[in-house]
Every structure is written in C-alpha cells, then in structure tokens.
Design a protein around this nucleic acid. Structure first.
Lengths: 331, 331
DNA sequence: GATCGAGATTGGAGCGCTCTATTGAGTAGA
DNA sequence: TCTACTCAATAGAGCGCTCCAATCTCGATC
C-alpha cells in the first residue's frame, strides 16, 4: 500500500479511500492510484482492513453435516446472498458432536465474524445463547426461543398439509401417514397430516416408521399383513422420499400398482424423486431460499436494523409427479 | 489482552506466549494468565494474530458446485483435515462461470490464505497459474501441468478396470459400456473399460450415452432395438449410477431381469445405489479421502517441505451389491 | 486582492496481536 | 563473593490498514 501511494504520488490514506470507493476523491487521483495498484499487483489485505476498521466481512457457518444434500443446498443459498452483500463464509463442521461443535464455534468466533449461521446444530442451547451475546446468530432448521437468536425453518406442518390436501382433492379418503419417528422434522409433518385429515373429517392413521427406505418397506409390509381389502389405504403420505421409495417397493412386491392402486407422496424432493423411473410426487423445501433468507435475516441484525428476534417459516411447495392419481373406483 | 495481562500481573507478551503454548512460561504465570482470561472471557483475535505473525490459518476453498454431493463429501474431508491441522476454511462458490470464479478467487486471496483448494474449477489455466504464484494451490478433479500446482484426482481408469474385471471374473464376455460423452470423468472410465477388455482379448463395445437416467434408458432401448438374441450383452458398465439406473429400468421394461439376464455396474456410489431396492454394484470414489489428501498435499507445500508438483491419483474401490452375478448359462 | 468555505488530501494514532532484542532473576562453578 | 550462564519475563516496534482531525487548494464572493 505504501508502495502504491508512493508510485501514485499520494498518501496512504488516499489509497485507502480509493479502494473503499469514497466519493471524495478526485477522478485524477483515483485513476493514478488504480494505475499504480495495477502495475504493482496490489490487492488490499482483508484481515488488516477488518482489524483497522473494526468491522468484519466474515460470516461464520457451522454445519452439522455437510454430506446431507439439504445443507449443501442451504449453503449454496448462503454463499450467494453473502457474496452479493460483500461477505465471505468461514465454514466449520461439528460432525454431530456437541463438544466438537462447541469447539468449532469457538474457532469461528475467533475470527470475529459479523454474524454466525448455525445449521441444525446439536449444540447446547446455552452455548448458542453465549454466542448470541457476542455476535448476531441465526439458527436454521432448529427452533429457539432465545431472545437474541433468529430462526429460519421449513414449515413442515403446511408442507404435510399440502401433500394431504393434494391427495384429498384427488378423491382419496383412506390416507395413511408413514411416520418419521424421532427425526427432527417428523413431528411437524405428522401434525400437518393430522390437521389436514381432521379438517376434512377423515380418520387419521399414523403408521410408525422411520426416514429410511428399509423402514418404509417394513411399515408397508406390516400394514398389508394386518388389513384386508377395503381397509387398505388408497394413498400413503411418507415421512420423506427414502421412506416413500421403500414403501413403493413393498407395495409393488405385494402386487399393488402405484399410483393406480395406491398413491404415494414423499417429502424433501431429493434427486431420487426426480428420476424418471421413480417420478415421485413430493414436497420441496426451498433450501437455497432458506440460505438466502438466513443471511438476510442475519444482516438486518448486523446492521442494527432490528433487535427483536424473528422466526422465519418458509412455505414448502408440492411437486406433483407420477406417483399420485385419483383412487380407482372414483368417478 | 491488555486487560488480561494487567489482571494476571504480567506483560502482554507473556499472555501471547501462554496462548501459543510456549514452553518457556512458568507454570505459575501460565495458570494466572489462564485464570484471568477465563474471568474476563478473553479469546484471542485470529485476524490480529494472522496480521502480526505474518502467518495464516486460513485455507481458501473454491468450489464449482456445492449442490453436487461429490463436492460436499470432498469438503467434509477438507474440513476434517484442516481442523486437525489447525486451519479454517473460507469457502466460495463460482457457480460454473469463469468470471465469477475469478472474482471469488480474488476475494479468497484477499484473506491471504496459507493455501487454496480449487474444486473442479472452470477457471482459466492462466488464472490458476497467477494464483499459484502468490500462494500454494491444489486442484481437485481437474488436471494441470502447471509447475506450482498439485492435483488430486480419482483414478477413473483403474476404477473402470475394477468394474470390468469384476464382470469378467464372474464369467461375462459380452460387456458393453454406456459412455458418459463429454462429461469430465467419462474419458478415463472409457479408457479403463477399453484397457480391461483388451487385456482379456474381448471386443469393446462403447454405446454413446450421458450421465443421466434418461440417457441410460434411451441407450439401452436403442441397443435392444438393434441387436438380436445372442448378441445382447450379458453385462453393462454404465458411466455413472444415474445412467445405470436408467439402463436397469429399460432392461426390465424389455422383460430382461437384472442381474439374472444382464448384470449392471454403475460408478460413483451415490445414495441411490445403496437403496435396498436398487442395490447397485458400483465404484466408490474415496471422496472424503480426496479432501483429506488435498489438504495434506497443500500443507506440505505451505510448510515448504516440497516444491515440485505432485499428482495424486486415488484408487477407487468396487462396492459389490445385487446387480451383478454370473451370466446365465455359465457353469 | 483578501477572505471564505467546501472539497480534496494528509499525518499519525491505533486496531490486537507477535517477535526480536533486552533485562531480570536465579543458579552453579570457581 | 564474584562471574558466567540459563531461563523467564518484558519493552517496544511493527503487521497493513482505517479514521479522525488537521491542513491544503482553489474557485467564488465581496
């Protein structure tokens, strides 16, 4: 910087002004500085700048599991929004261990980020609160009633309702839900299913299962083993796509056609669902949008535009593909 | 830091030594400093440290497409190795545009990282060379003959050979390859297929296709439409898992059973392949290992242990599942 | 031509830390 | 008791930048 200033025949301070697009720099000097910088290959030092200006262009991101496509998509959204706002992402993984997450968070904070995004952390609530006292924090895919913490979540209740309403509008009446058990997202989806069924005076039927294909198979086999003809549901709302895929396998194995005999809806819109052969009707979470919104929510707080916590609940959308149709016998 | 020093009754320099685990600090002082730091909630400032020590604990990561699970897995590996070595990841995405990637790289470099990892960038070679002049660079999933640049790649040739040798050892003779066309990884896989077939004096048969399920379906339909009975391959080596999945669909549609009539091998070991219903035999790239190795390779250069470029080629492994068996009619 | 004021420019302190050289306190040997 | 060392601790400069207050420049005004 010193050298650039010397070469352009100006002071260091002026170089700083030029690189920060200050309006109070004459065109002549600006050109001279830019030229000198180009010749010398000068590039400002982000860390020195952060230190001197006491501001940070860093956003910390703590992700519990990157290998999950869900988070990868969210981070893509984070990155886009951060880049646009002039921020960089510092990324750390906690490998699903509270202790490692706490350590990762500590290291993140040592960079004095402008804010921190926590993606579905398993971290103790107290640790989150402690972080929130030092820096703005936004939580994705995990609730919180902490005062200094904003949250961004998929509205699983309305997503499930979307799926069930779709089935009902097709004419289905006997619709069962393959439950996700203890999975984080399962409770909301179950609730949405129950709400939708109740709203139409239909009996809810929740079959215990899990968010895997084998569990889906097993649950359907168990179902078919216990019910007879007219009591078999004409539609299934699965806890997620993997579960739906297992369920479809078991149905076909039992000689039932999908969707002619039984319609199936999944949740998550994984790459699996898009496969031509599978062509699964499913609920899509706006993952990148969640990332984008997380950054925007965070920056509002960073810029001091808001102090009260905000709870963002994003509307998922239904992707209708080939595993749903009206029940046989209807119209 | 000033405050901590005062509270512990020592100098600032001593606090610095304590936080850097210097051996030349008496136990008494160390304890005093640590206690004072805990009381005051002091945490060292990573950026100030970097600035003063002229060293960096940052590794820049430029990823072309995070949404691709492949990269997410690699990054997981990067993160693990980086954390272990005491480095943090600064992440940027280029969204497959050379211009945006160049900009992202520039921003990455403004943090004066100790090194940079480029994941399958579409960046111009000259831009990579320019970066390599300023900082150690390692390239993942893209070759380079630049002197200052190390590379880490999956050995697609031996991966393909692994798949084909497996089929041959099962007794297959008529093995066709569903080609990946212009996809980056396709050439190596095609080459490996050809090598393995030639090594056993078997005629190679490359069917043009692409790395998608629909392309796999189409290619198999085309194949079945042109060949008669005895000329139908008993095994297919698909360019990747999606392609294999499409191929399987088309085979079953034509009344051929997998694997009894036709064995199928994929490539990539996606989550799809592990589904119980699919249970695809496929080739697994050591993705996390690639990330880990990328960091280690980078750090060798960072520490100045090596100056000559290194070309890491990782051996993929075969995951045998349910889509391969001996051809009917054999033994 | 002197004065004023607005805009352009600059000096210098300081962000939180490290690092070199130096001082201080013991300790052992003569 | 004195010198020679060693190990522990410190002072102070400086990393690359920003930002405040101070200064300079120059056209407009009287």
């Amino acid at each position: 910087m010193e050298d650039v200033a010397a070469r352009a025949g100006v002071s260091r301070a002026l170089v700083s002004l030029v690189f920060n697009d200050s309006p109070k720099v004459s065109e002549r000097r600006r050109a001279a500085v830019l030229a000198a910088a180009a010749e010398l290959g000068y590039q400002p030092h982000a860390m020195a700048k952060a230190l001197a200006s006491r501001t940070s262009t860093v956003l910390g991101v703590l992700v519990s599991d990157l290998r999950n496509t869900f988070f990868a998509d969210v981070i893509e959204g984070l990155d886009g929004a951060a880049t646009q706002a002039g921020f960089e992402l510092v990324l750390n993984t906690g490998s699903r261990s509270p202790a490692r997450e706490a350590d990762a968070l500590r290291r993140l904070l040592s960079f004095r980020p402008a804010g921190v995004v926590l993606l579905s952390p398993v971290l103790a609530a107290s640790a989150i609160a402690a972080a929130a006292r030092r820096v703005p924090v936004v939580l994705v895919s995990r609730g919180s009633r902490q005062p200094g913490v904003d949250t961004v979540n998929d509205d699983g209740v309305s997503g499930a309702r979307l799926a069930v309403e779709h089935l009902i509008s097709l004419g289905h009446r006997r619709i069962a839900h393959l439950d996700g058990g203890t999975a984080t997202a399962a409770a909301a989806r179950r609730k949405g299913y129950r709400q939708a069924m109740a709203a139409h005076d239909l009996p809810a039927r929740v079959l215990p299962s899990e968010h895997t294909d084998t569990a889906g198979e097993k649950a359907v086999r168990a179902l078919l083993g216990t019910v007879e003809g007219d009591d078999v549901p004409t539609a299934l709302f699965a806890g997620n796509d993997f579960n739906a895929f297992g369920a479809i396998s078991a149905l076909e194995e039992a000689g039932l056609r999908v969707p002619e005999d039984v319609s199936v809806v999944g949740y998550d819109n994984t790459s699996l669902a898009a496969l031509r052969r599978v062509s699964l009707t499913t609920v899509d979470q706006p993952r990148m949008e969640m990332g984008r919104l997380a950054v925007e929510t965070l920056l509002e707080r960073v810029r001091g535009e808001r102090a009260e916590p905000v709870r963002q609940l994003l509307r998922p959308t239904l992707v209708v593909r080939g595993t749903t149709c009206p029940p046989s016998g209807s119209d």
